[in-house]
Design a protein around this nucleic acid. Structure first.
Lengths: 274, 274
DNA sequence: GAGTGGTCTAGACCACTGT
DNA sequence: CAGTGGTCTAGACCACTCC
């Protein structure tokens, strides 16, 4: 049954009104992080709406990232997950500077630790290596023929104390290039002390520049599952392309980060005026 | 009425199955960009599901960014919006290099045009200036007392031919600093030839570095409206902090970009090994 | 067992779009 | 006008959590 229908221009659906009212309660602190919302039947009575409409309102609050549902327990104001920070250009130069250090010293701290500020022991980085044939996209990026064998590495980063990964990554390199150092073809050698730039150094490649392309999008079902994302949480995708000093693309990587936990930092140093 | 209930572990709700089936049709090309999905009543009959459940499936497809709804017309496979590219560190140095050029030369091309590659005439940048008092967050960032007057500038970028803005921005500067050149306090002087770095130059400030912090999140209702975002489309937020050569924060800005259209580029040049 | 959110039904009226 | 998606109702059974 429909009640009063307004003729004013700014009619809003009633579930929207409810969503905004609860949103305001969260934003001004009447409902704090971790607090339970009234149950759906309770809200249904309170606002004189069907449960379906109340669920519409809660759906809206989830899309705003303010609420999460726990089956069998209740709807809760979403606590801000602790954000981890991924420092970028600084990181790349830092990694390059360490390439020539001896193995044992390089192994003490890797790029992920440098990026996130966590100690090495917290981080588990399972890697998986497979050989694929370059599709049209990879072929164009690397400037090779489609069908060229590529080494694809898949990995995640995570802390030992939390189940959900901090990131999911895939990287590609032309297999022929990598094969110049057979150690690079074995997943068992991960984590490689000193990271990708040292791996490339062992086959005589120096990097000149790295380009990052960043987009945000909705996660795939698989990503949502593996990163334990709440519905409506976007992911940040970094496509990192590494160029050697003679202008070739030598490595490309896609890194998927959960936007509720990740934050990227880029620092630009400007030249002084003279 | 419920039908067969599986006891297998991987039970999926029927709306989920429908969503995945339609998703696959889109991904393998049976449904191309811009194509209309069957109407909701039609899907309801086709899958022997209530319209509510069909709508659940379509909601899922919207969250995946694959489908958009048009009221009174139908549900459509979402054409990929053309992405525009925002180049970052390169841009900052480019802008700094132009600070000393004469006004007329500087005015010919601004930062937004340089970033997006579109001609100047396409871009309309309405700006609004207001004076606010620094809250705790701004006060801490700028190293001033809470309550200090700040100049807040709000602006958007858009093309002349499309109604939806490319970005929404707000920037802050300590009012006392800006007041050293009274021209900076007037919104009517926008667009300022040469951008922020030239504005700062007129009051004797040289920038040393710029830090960008990037997050992705769900849009606020206001942002979704102004950027004309489809439900489920995240936004990218860049918080840009500019440091002067003597280490002070002189400007801070938040830029909100629609993730269905924007892509960020960062380029890192690495020093050569000697 | 009582209470929660997740899924689902079979209807209904509405505003909007096209012809 | 007929057809579409948007909103809404008043129920129902389910799996899950907590006591």
């Amino acid at each position: 049954m429909y009640r009063e229908r307004m003729t004013t221009r700014d009619w809003r659906p009633r579930y929207q009104v409810v969503a905004e009212e609860i949103r305001d309660q969260i934003l001004n602190g009447d409902l704090g992080p971790g607090d339970a919302l009234p149950s759906e039947p309770a809200l249904s009575t309170q606002y004189d709406l069907s449960r379906t409409s109340v669920r519409n309102a809660i759906q809206q609050l989830k899309e705003w990232g303010l609420v999460r549902s726990e089956r069998g327990r209740g709807n809760y104001v979403r606590p801000h997950r602790q954000r981890f920070i991924r420092k970028q250009p600084d990181l790349y130069q830092w990694e390059k500077n360490r390439v020539h250090l001896p193995d044992d010293e390089r192994g003490q701290e890797g790029a992920t630790e440098h990026q996130t500020g966590r100690p090495l022991s917290d981080l588990v980085i399972p890697a998986e290596y497979v050989t694929i044939e370059a599709g049209d996209e990879l072929a164009e990026i690397f400037g090779v023929e489609a069908g060229t064998p590529m080494l694809e590495r898949r990995y995640g980063t995570r802390t030992a104390d939390e189940a959900a990964p901090l990131s999911l990554g895939r990287s590609w390199i032309v297999k022929e290039t990598a094969a110049q150092n057979p150690d690079l073809l074995e997943a068992e050698n991960e984590p490689w002390p000193g990271g990708t730039q040292h791996q490339l150094f062992t086959i005589g490649i120096e990097l000149d520049r790295i380009e990052d392309r960043i987009i945000a999008r909705a996660p795939t079902a698989d990503e949502a599952l593996r990163l334990e994302l709440d519905p409506g949480t976007p992911v940040i995708v970094i496509r990192k392309t590494s160029f050697s000093t003679n202008g070739d693309v030598v490595e490309m990587a896609d890194v998927v980060l959960p936007s509720d936990r990740a934050e990227l930092h880029y620092m630009t140093s400007l030249e002084r005026w003279t």
